[in-house]
Design a protein around this nucleic acid. Structure first.
Lengths: 222, 222
DNA sequence: CAAGCATATTTGCTAAATGCAACTAACTTG
DNA sequence: CAAGTTAGTTGCATTTAGCAAATATGCTTG
């Protein structure tokens, strides 16, 4: 055969902290890159993990205590330069969660030097989030389960980096038909209450990236 | 460490044969799946291949004698079920070439059973080609270097599976501004000659999937 | 060589989608 | 109950896409 190749899974876990897109980072306890910030990741456990997505969920559970409502494969970063230990392949995932969860978040625009090529991986994840946001309801996963249309529009503007027209935005969202009104629920504040929505429960199968084994999660893929 | 994981690269190499989208397949000489059709692929050679893309190009060179003008990473298919030898990860690429080249091509719509999960990988590649075709000039890589707008439109219709309006198509292509007129060149037949075009030479860097090492190819990425 | 044929390319119009701004609605606060 | 603030809608101008017809250009044929 051939000399063994290091196979890891790294996850770009993103959320919004005070309206700023942030990524979860962990300070590495061990070499290589001991003490530096890195994405949550780790070796594939051939015994435990049925496939790469399982490994991603396991890593998020073990290192973050989170099971994100959205997870998709990003790309695989592989080569002889990215890890001082040798030829390595990192199967990178990207995940979105609502901002409630505890973790150490770093704004994606103010990253210091990171371990490995993790800065490039994060950049790829941000690019993917942006491009998918142009035609999908992905940014909704950055919000809590229920939200108002004004909140949703704000997230889109944050992610896309440009302001959107209110009426056009609402037209588009309605014709995509991916939200459910939470009947009778309104956000109460100092002004007119706003209708509350939630993402439709939909069994989406991510054909592109699905493994041989059927997925167990309901709310995933796009 | 952990038990070694099989790391391979497989390439979905597509072209058009007589207006039908086809994929290059090879009959496997060895177990597992000896005698069955499979995608061109092979182990990563840690000594030779600087990164996964290098491995894809090497495999296409060795097994197909081709260096395709378009190559991008598709996804990684990894798990314990897809290869009888154990936990394996296949970094899948997809590539487009003009129909001139010699090889054994199979129409993507009439595939028999294939080795491993290669049918799923091909399906993912076709999906990716289709979705990218909706907003890019990707299908042009399925044509020879120079072509007419009528030929290009026909390819789009083939790939997208639905007829397109002639004037709208030409408007869109022109405003995308990704083609160069080949001045003074026309396709001569029994009718009015047609203007010949070629893809603009553009240095596109595929940020999403680029490795640490810079790419050597000019015409690649999107 | 003129008429007819086949395909290329453009043009004009209609319908649909989008962008912008003003308008109405509902609630709180003083 | 008037003023202020945010929610949600409506009307219209502008842009874009879809469809059909007209025009252009070369070849073939009588």
């Amino acid at each position: 055969m051939y000399p063994p190749i290091i196979v890891t899974v790294d996850v770009v876990l993103m959320t919004l902290c005070l309206d700023v897109l942030c990524v979860a980072l962990i300070r590495r306890p061990n070499a290589p890159f001991a003490g530096e910030l890195a994405l949550p990741g780790g070796y594939v456990h051939a015994q435990e993990d049925g496939n790469a997505e399982d490994a991603a969920y396991r890593i998020l559970r073990e290192k973050m205590g989170i099971r994100p409502p959205y997870l998709e494969q990003l790309a695989t970063f592989a080569g002889d330069q990215r890890d001082p230990r040798g030829w390595s392949a990192s199967i990178a995932y990207f995940a979105l969660v609502s901002p409630t969860t505890e973790a150490t978040w770093q704004p994606v625009n103010e990253l210091k030097t990171l371990a490995f090529d993790h800065a490039a991986i994060i950049q790829a994840a941000v690019d993917r989030l942006r491009s998918k946001s142009a035609y999908s309801v992905l940014p909704a996963y950055l919000l809590p389960e229920t939200f108002t249309l004004a909140e949703l529009q704000k997230i889109y503007e944050q992610v896309l980096g440009s302001p959107l027209d209110k009426s056009s935005f609402r037209r588009k969202i309605k014709e995509l038909d991916l939200l459910d009104q939470v009947a009778g629920s309104f956000q109460i504040g100092n002004q007119r209450p706003a209708q509350i929505y939630r993402l439709k429960k939909m069994m989406t199968f991510d054909r592109t990236l699905s493994q041989s084994a059927p997925r167990k999660t309901g709310r995933s893929g796009q």
